[in-house]
């Protein structure tokens, strides 16, 4: 048993994780005729809590409760994996990426997230404003504007051979490349890294 846990605790390679994520598509279709998509959950939260008479949030969200249950599961899954089968070793990050990030002012490479950015101490600072508030806003606004995220477009959409999803995915990547290679450095300097 201990050996099994130890084996599970190692980071899982892409060729194990990728197919498992891909299998979510037929699993949801077969267990309930549901289309895989996660960013919709954010819309359901709006529809439940602050519909404010906006037509975009006026729909039968009760029918979509499954989606909220699914994302609650993801949160619990995160807890389970971190509590019971977490990797005892430090995360392995490509040397090149470490150098580039160190040049930007990142000093902590020990966990899944750099504590230089993702900590409560940064909440009311320019760093927090950039990475949590603005970053999160762009994710929520952009995914809804695009009609889906990595799950709804890149995985579900392309899997069902729908070209608009391929277009969306290409622009996800273009946005990411532009931020990473062009905008992030000046922004990080601006917020005090």
């Amino acid at each position: 048993m201990n050996q099994f846990i130890e084996w599970l605790s190692q980071p899982w390679p892409w060729y194990v994780a990728g197919p498992m994520i891909g299998l979510t598509v037929p699993a949801l279709l077969i267990i309930g005729n549901k289309t895989f998509g996660i960013s919709s959950s954010l819309r359901h939260v709006c529809a439940i809590c602050v519909p404010s008479g906006i037509p975009f949030f006026n729909y039968n969200w009760k029918k979509e409760t499954w989606n909220l249950v699914f994302v609650l599961g993801i949160l619990i899954g995160g807890f389970v994996a971190t509590t019971f089968i977490s990797n005892p070793n430090q995360i392995v990050i490509a040397a090149e990426t470490q150098q580039e990030l160190a040049a930007l002012g990142i000093t902590d490479f020990s966990g899944l997230m750099p504590s230089d950015i993702f900590s409560w101490e940064n909440l009311f600072t320019a760093k927090g404003l950039l990475f949590f508030v603005i970053g999160g806003f762009l994710v929520g606004f952009g995914t809804r504007y695009a009609g889906g995220c990595t799950s709804g477009h890149a995985i579900m959409g392309i899997s069902s051979l729908q070209w608009p999803s391929l277009v969306a995915t290409i622009f996800f990547m273009l946005g990411g490349f532009l931020m990473t290679h062009v905008i992030m450095e000046p922004l990080m300097k601006l917020v005090g890294f």
Binding site: I38, S39, S41, L42, V71, I74, M113, L130, F131, F132, I134, G135, G136, F137, L138, V139, G140, F141, G142, T143, R144, Y145, A146, G147, C149, T150, S151, H153, P164, S165, V167, A168, T169, I170, F171, F172, M173, L174, G175, G176, F177, L178, M179, T180, I183, M184
Partner: peptide, 20 residues
Amino acid sequence: QIYGGFIFGLGWALTGACPG
């Protein structure tokens, strides 16, 4: 899908996370 996708991409690189 073009405008929104691009905006999400900018946020994805900052937060290091898509909604899931």
